[in-house]
Amino acid sequence: MLEGKVKWFNSEKGFGFIEVEGQDDVFVHFSAIQGEGFKTLEEGQAVSFEIVEGNRGPQAANVTKEA
């Protein structure tokens, strides 16, 4: 699992990017966010995740919000 911070997330469109120190930003789709209820992320929020190869390159999977 990697750790990063949410760079930005558009809850209307359901996607955004996660910043990872020393690496390129990683695309995140709302469907990759773990948990119940409305799936969104806040700018600057700490998250842990895995990287998988998507249709358009690397993207986040199994995203969990850090306490």
Rank of each mutant, 00 (worst) to 15 (best):
M1T: 12
M1G: 13
M1W: 07
L2V: 10
E3L: 08
E3F: 11
E3A: 13
G4F: 02
G4M: 01
G4T: 01
K5R: 14
K5V: 08
K5T: 05
K5S: 06
V6F: 02
V6S: 02
V6E: 00
V6M: 03
K7T: 04
K7L: 06
K7C: 03
F9N: 00
N10C: 04
N10M: 10
S11C: 05
S11K: 13
S11L: 10
E12V: 09
E12Y: 14
K13A: 08
K13W: 11
G14W: 02
F15D: 01
F15G: 02
F15A: 03
G16A: 01
G16H: 00
G16C: 01
G16N: 00
F17D: 00
F17M: 15
F17P: 00
I18N: 00
E19T: 14
V20F: 07
V20H: 07
E21A: 08
E21G: 10
G22Y: 05
G22I: 03
G22M: 09
G22W: 04
G22C: 05
Q23F: 13
Q23M: 10
D24F: 05
D24R: 14
D24G: 15
D24P: 09
D25M: 06
D25K: 04
V26S: 03
F27V: 03
F27W: 09
F27D: 00
F27G: 02
V28W: 02
V28K: 00
V28R: 00
H29F: 13
H29D: 03
H29V: 03
H29G: 03
F30I: 11
F30P: 01
F30G: 03
S31Y: 11
A32D: 11
A32E: 09
Q34K: 15
G35D: 15
G35V: 08
G35W: 12
G35H: 15
E36H: 10
E36S: 07
E36I: 09
E36L: 14
E36C: 05
G37Q: 09
G37K: 09
G37A: 09
F38V: 07
F38P: 07
F38R: 08
K39H: 08
K39N: 07
T40Y: 07
T40D: 13
T40F: 10
L41V: 06
E42K: 11
E42Y: 11
E42W: 10
E43H: 11
E43P: 07
E43T: 11
G44E: 04
G44M: 07
G44P: 03
Q45P: 01
Q45T: 14
Q45K: 07
A46Y: 08
A46H: 10
V47S: 01
S48Y: 13
S48H: 09
S48A: 10
F49G: 02
F49Q: 00
E50F: 15
E50Y: 14
I51D: 01
I51C: 05
I51S: 04
I51P: 03
V52G: 14
V52R: 07
E53Y: 09
E53K: 15
G54V: 07
G54N: 07
N55K: 08
P58W: 10
P58V: 09
P58M: 08
Q59P: 01
Q59G: 05
Q59I: 13
A60V: 03
A60P: 01
A61W: 14
A61E: 09
N62H: 08
N62S: 08
N62V: 11
V63Q: 00
V63N: 01
T64G: 10
K65H: 11
K65Q: 11
K65G: 14
E66L: 09
E66C: 05
E66G: 15
E66T: 15
E66K: 15
